[in-house]
Design a protein around this nucleic acid. Structure first.
Lengths: 207, 207
DNA sequence: TTTTTTCTACCTGATTTCAGGTATATTCTG
DNA sequence: CAGAATATACCTGAAATCAGGTAGAAAAAA
């Protein structure tokens, strides 16, 4: 019997996956979780064949969580389930050891096939994902730059629509410092205004 | 037998709801759709007791779709299923005739209870939603301003991080015109920069 | 067909962001 | 400990946004 674990912060989605799996003869969902940390602590005491994980979770993002899972339990197969269609996200999660990437708007057949494909040791993708992978993007070449804690903190405030001055006040810093951080981030992502900064950073799960 | 229809652009979510309903004795999902228009054309030829609808759909938002459903078939019970926690969204969809509002991170029990509650003619909410409704927000008083087509069009380009100049070029308009539209929208939402404009507009489903 | 709304364009001036730097103290890391 | 990375702050100047108007033409609604 193949043992699965499911991670998704939406119970209804878990319900959907569980009911899908239970229709299959040789598989069983033995654990479902709404956060990455819950999954990790479960994996410490249980052996799991396949993990289906949502890329957008409240505590960690799928890229990091996938790496954690593979580190903890290298033979566990990880399949990402996501809404994100950014090529770089897909590629990075695959590099971190995922065996598949299936979009949430994929049909249930696609998901079912994906699980079976991954079980055979192949890579599993939903149709749309294959198209995304097929055409390389210029943005990928940049890689995924790292933001420091301070930068992330400031980015979040920028994303809320706060001005440099008010952020400076809130963090007890000079406005010039805030500007420097903003500009450093903009340079890292090669964008030319704050809105683009937020958009790209959000896409790349940098916030 | 109570007949349900489900609208959600994620087949897995539909799967979850269907499996949930099928466990109940007296209900049956007779139609599931991935867009608002698909639901509407179905309702033209079928009588449905309950519609479960996702608020974020590719074609229309839940506020408008709910109104359409109630107009077409006033006795059909509508329950919104959403991630949005903005009070104004909840209140508006209720004003448009919805009988409930359940968050996607609600437990399956909450959803089940909600459906039964709505069936009894009461309003059904998940726990979190009750808290949101309980405390009135200052933002609600403003109501939901309407954006014109042109304004929405420009707002979308702003949201992509484009500058006034490039938007003007793209739409064959004067940059001053773009600025005027942006400022008019900012005034309508009572915000003081473009990022806030995008945030609030997105929250309020104005884009 | 009036009236209203929408779309368009402009003016002026204040404020903010953007872009190129430099620089120093601190903290992390090999 | 030495070097690298991080966090902080400043300078200058250009560009863009923000805020307050006004105003006419076109489209939609009454």
């Amino acid at each position: 019997m193949i043992k699965l674990a499911v991670v998704d912060d939406h119970p209804i989605v878990i319900q959907g996956i569980v009911s899908l799996i239970n229709n299959l003869e040789n598989m069983q969902v033995v654990g479902s979780f709404q956060s990455g940390s819950a999954l990790i602590s479960f994996l410490n005491t249980h052996e799991i064949d396949i993990v289906l994980l949502d890329v957008m979770l409240p505590d960690v993002n799928g890229i990091e969580l996938c790496a954690q899972v593979k580190k903890l339990s290298p033979k566990t197969i990880v399949i990402a389930i996501s809404n994100h269609t950014e090529r770089s996200i897909i590629m990075q999660i695959l590099q971190n050891g995922a065996s598949g990437y299936i979009l949430k708007n994929a049909s249930v057949e696609e998901l079912k096939n994906g699980i079976e494909t991954a079980l055979r040791g192949e890579l599993a993708f939903s149709k749309e994902v294959i198209e995304i992978i097929a055409k390389p993007s210029v943005n990928d070449l940049k890689g995924r730059p790292k933001f420091t804690k301070r930068e992330k903190q400031i980015l979040q405030l920028i994303a809320q629509g706060k001005t440099t001055a008010s952020i400076a006040e809130e963090l007890f810093l000079s406005p010039l410092t805030i500007e420097t951080h903003r500009r450093n981030m903009m340079q890292k992502l090669d964008v030319k205004n704050a809105i683009e900064l937020i958009n790209i950073a959000t896409e790349q799960l940098l916030i």
